[in-house]
Design a protein around this nucleic acid. Structure first.
Lengths: 161, 161
DNA sequence: CGAACTATTGCATAATTTTGCACCGTGTTT
DNA sequence: AAACACGGTGCAAAATTATGCAATAGTTCG
C-alpha cells in the first residue's frame, strides 16, 4: 500500500468524522484543500475500503459516516420534547472542554444522547453520575457546539454558564 | 399518509432486514413480487425517510441496512485489517487531552493497559464505557504519545482521527 | 538488474440514486 | 359543488457513485 494512499485514507476518515460530508465531491474538495491529489473515482474506492456508510441525514440530505460511529448509533428518532425534561442542569466551557451538569444519575443518558448524534467535533464524552465531560476538537467554535447540543437538549442555551 | 405508503414502508424495512439488498432495483423487485407497485424513485424517497443506510459490504459490494440494525449485529465485526483486535476504535487529540474510543465496555480495559505501561507523560486516565480520556503533560509531543500508545495498541496509528 | 507480478489510479462510461415538475387522488374550506 | 390544499407518485433528467480498462508506480524474485 503506497504511502500516499495510506495518508489519504487517514485523511478521509478524519474529514468524515469532522465535517458533515454529503457527497464524494465535497470530500474531494476537502482533501484537495489539504493538498491531496485524487479523483472522485478513487474516493469511491476508498469509501468502500473503509466501509464508510452513506446515511440519510434530516438536515443535509445525506451524510457519510465512519463505521465505528454507526456501531454505537441509536438512530431511533429521539424527540426530547416528547420525553419531557432531559435532566440537564447546566452547560459550561473551559478550553477545549465542555461540562454538562445533570440531575443525579442522568449523566450517562445525556452522554449517550450526545454520542448517538454524531457531532463530529465532539471527539469524546465521559459520564460520571451527574456530570458529563465533552472533549471538543481544537479550534471549534463554542457557539457551534452549543447549537448542536441545542438540537439534542432544546433548553440548553438557557443553562449556559 | 396513504395506506399504501405505510404498508410499503413496512415492507421495505422487512425486506431490508431479511435479505441482503444491494440496490434499489433489487429492492424494487422484491416489493413487486409481494404485489407492491412502485418505482425506483419512490424507493429512493422511502429509503431517505426510513433513514436506511447504504454501507459497503465485502461480499456483495453494498448493502442497505435499517438504522437500528446498525446498533446490533451487522457491523460488530468489521475488517480487522482496518481496525484491529484490541477493542480500540479511534484516537484523537485536543489540547493536552487524548481520547480513545473503544468498543462498548472496553474502555476500562484499555485504560488499565495504558496505566500499567507507565507512560510518564500521561498524567492520568479516566475510563467511561467506551471512551478513555488521557490527560497529557503539558508540552509533550503528540507524536511521542502516539508512539508510546502504539506499543500497547499496535494498530492505533490507523485509527488516528 | 530485469522480468514478472501486484497495487494504485485516472479516464471514460456505466450504473445507480436523487430530484424538479406535473399530475392525481383525497380531504377541507368557502 | 367548486376551489383549494396537500401528500404521494411517476417520469425524465440531473446528480452522484461505481467500475472496466489501460497506463503507471511499486515490489518480488531469480
Amino acid at each position: 500500500m503506497s504511502k500516499n494512499k495510506i495518508a489519504r485514507l487517514f485523511a478521509v476518515r478524519r474529514i468524515v468524522n469532522k465535517y458533515v460530508i454529503a457527497s464524494q465531491e465535497e470530500l474531494l474538495n476537502k482533501l484537495q484543500q489539504e493538498g491531496f491529489k485524487a479523483t472522485q473515482a478513487t474516493l469511491s474506492r476508498d469509501i468502500k475500503e473503509l466501509k464508510i456508510a452513506k446515511v440519510p441525514n434530516p438536515e443535509t440530505g445525506y451524510q457519510y459516516v465512519n463505521p465505528e460511529a454507526l456501531e454505537n448509533a441509536t438512530f431511533k428518532n429521539f424527540d426530547p420534547s416528547v420525553v419531557g425534561g432531559t435532566g440537564i442542569r447546566s452547560l459550561a466551557y473551559s478550553g477545549s472542554l465542555a461540562v454538562i451538569k445533570t440531575q443525579p444519575g442522568y449523566a450517562s443518558v445525556a452522554a449517550s444522547l450526545v454520542d448517538s448524534n454524531h457531532v463530529g467535533d465532539i471527539i469524546g464524552t465521559l459520564a460520571g453520575d451527574d456530570t458529563v465531560l465533552l472533549v471538543i476538537r481544537e479550534g471549534v467554535d463554542r457557539e457551534f457546539i452549543t447549537n448542536r447540543l441545542a438540537v439534542i437538549f432544546p433548553d440548553i442555551r438557557n443553562l449556559l454558564l
